[in-house]
Design a protein around this nucleic acid. Structure first.
Lengths: 349, 349
DNA sequence: AGTTACATTTGGATCGTTCTAATCCGGTAA
DNA sequence: TTACCGGATTAGAACGATCCAAATGTAACT
């Protein structure tokens, strides 16, 4: 029984081998289910493995075999439900493939990103999934990651040019098309004065969404006033604070395409404080379709990006890359889907 | 320059040693900043390390030193914001201590929990932080984890008795006291007929919260009717569906202590459908203080559990355990804090 | 010159596994 | 008898680091 087993040292192949009078090599063969070993000895060895409570030392095995069974996942912030769902999808798919997820959070700091990547690399992951911090530069990432271990960029571009020799894949959301869909939807509802609210222009996803908005507006022959572009941090609180700026210009908008759901929810609060009912007196759309979007005072029209599925997809892409290390690097753009809810009302007559 | 470095093989200590005419051992000393090595040779070696783009192989080092620099974090579901915040806190603290987080998700399935634990253990974590799946049994966890690697239980009890010889620590939330606070608050507001709504009685956290509710009621000399205890799955949807059951008994409650915030938000929806305005016609409290609690139609009175801080605390506890492997096992109960918002109105006259 | 002291450096064993190239053995063919 | 075969097993060298004891070189002191 387990209580007979010495508690001091880890059980190794040698212990098992000694315990049933075979060689280390034979035990190793048993462990890996080789057909070479005799049925009888296999049974004896398996019994001994159970008896001593052996646990496989994958680190030692991987060292010898010069392989790795882990993937590093580096994100800005797990507390963001978008990334949390993404991480859940990644882990789920990796686990199914026998890989283990090494987690790292950067908190939007390029410096911490460097540190985290460095630390994770020492554990020898087979690949990396990275959602870069805001001002992270391609050159810096390259200098710490090197060209040996494959990298998948998710969600954001890196500053500076991507090194063409490195096989870095990309998984991006169709930000521009999504924002265009939202804008077209508001236009179809009858709006003519539409603002773009929230986000910072130095974020690539924000730039792309803004481009989609401009594209839709101009295609429809509508003007975009500069004071209809309100920048703010992508948080509820900051969005609520910046609400007055929307109505400070000469021509007040009747609707806003928001950078993301958090901003949209904050804008709703801000509108309420001005006595405007979102979804009645003012129309707005979000981006991400986070859980809270469907609830709240006025259910939010938004773009679903299916973060969990993106996580699964990211994991798949990395696993494929591991099988074809020399394949050309690939850029995947995941589609987004417009979810129409009540917040995108027609303009008040 | 980096392009001169062969791309085929990983750079090892031997390569560096050969590259600057010293022994492997000396390079190793340089890496670890030993004062033994001469300033001059140190400089030469460091230059060579940079030149060849060396990355430390922690797996190999840990094998030799018989130590580990990783901690396994096993959760039900990262997509749950409570656990996501918790994980963020854990990773933050572990990273600061030089550890790396091995992630695993169980999806509330004891079978997957076994599999995930087994897989993570093969990577040799120094410790484990486990938030058990719903019906997970202590005996099963023990049989896969063994008594070698220290375990910290978070948030839930395990079924069956804890093995006393294993040094398993616990970090629990003060569920009972929290529910008692919420109930006392409602009583102080003037309510006499208070229900306990949501959750399943086979979940230990639900039992504890219910116990706190009963305790407060009885201490105040109030009765608890059996039909004031409505069980349902801890989701918004199921809570909304079970709302009518609250009013099916002889004496209708004027307030409800909810199992958690998700349930409370679902109950709000259900109340709305009955034409009752939560926070006006009916009072309710939640548990967890998730982000949505402060927003919504009627901001929710709830208990803040500070999940990120819990994560930091969990990591601290494990790190302490690593330093004192033989210390007596410890049970920590984290305090919770009542956050009074508008949902806990006085009863209608 | 011989001894001691000190600062540096190093060879070789080691961690727990896998891999390669033997080896062993009973049976069969030449 | 010898050679050979195929199935089962194994010794021993890896993998990339660390650790220990021992070696080296230099300077200082009898």
């Amino acid at each position: 029984m387990p209580s007979q087993i010495p508690i001091g040292r880890k059980v190794t192949l040698n212990d098992i081998a000694a315990g049933c009078d075979v060689s280390r090599a034979t035990v190793s063969l048993v462990l890996r289910g080789s057909p070479l070993v005799n049925k009888l000895t296999r049974a004896r060895v398996e019994e001994e493995l159970r008896r001593q409570g052996y646990v496989y030392n994958r680190a030692a095995a991987n060292l010898r075999r010069r392989i790795s069974t882990s993937i590093a996942l580096v994100l800005n912030d797990l507390a963001n439900p978008f990334f949390a769902e993404f991480a859940a999808g990644v882990d789920e798919t990796l686990a199914a493939a026998g890989f283990v997820t090494l987690l790292g959070c950067t908190g939007e700091s390029p410096a911490r990103e460097q540190a985290v990547l460095g630390s994770l690399l020492e554990h020898g992951p087979a690949g990396i999934i990275l959602s870069p911090a805001e001002h992270s530069k391609a050159h810096d990432v390259l200098s710490v990651v090197g060209r040996r271990v494959p990298l998948l960029l998710f969600n954001r571009e890196l500053g500076g040019a991507l090194p063409e020799f490195a096989h870095w894949d990309q998984l991006m959301l169709d930000n521009q098309h999504g924002a265009r869909l939202a804008t077209e939807h508001l236009i179809a509802r009858g709006h003519r004065h539409i603002a773009f609210f929230g986000g910072h222009h130095d974020s690539s996803s924000c730039r792309h969404r803004h481009a989609g908005y401009v594209e839709a507006m101009h295609t429809a022959g509508l003007r975009t006033e500069p004071y209809w572009r309100i920048e703010c941090a992508p948080t509820r609180l900051d969005a609520a604070h910046h609400t007055p700026a929307l109505f400070a210009g000469a021509l007040a908008p009747t609707a806003a395409v928001c950078y993301n759901d958090a901003v949209a929810l904050g804008l709703m609060l801000g509108l309420n404080q001005r006595g405007l009912r979102p979804g009645r007196d003012f129309a707005l759309t979000g981006f991400d379709d986070i859980a809270e979007a469907a609830l709240g005072m006025s259910p939010l029209t938004t773009l679903s990006v299916a973060p969990r599925e993106r996580g699964q997809q990211a994991a798949q892409l990395v696993l494929q890359r591991l099988q074809h290390p020399l394949a050309a690097s690939r850029r995947t753009v995941a589609p987004v889907q417009l979810i129409v809810r009540e917040s995108s009302c027609p303009p008040v007559a």
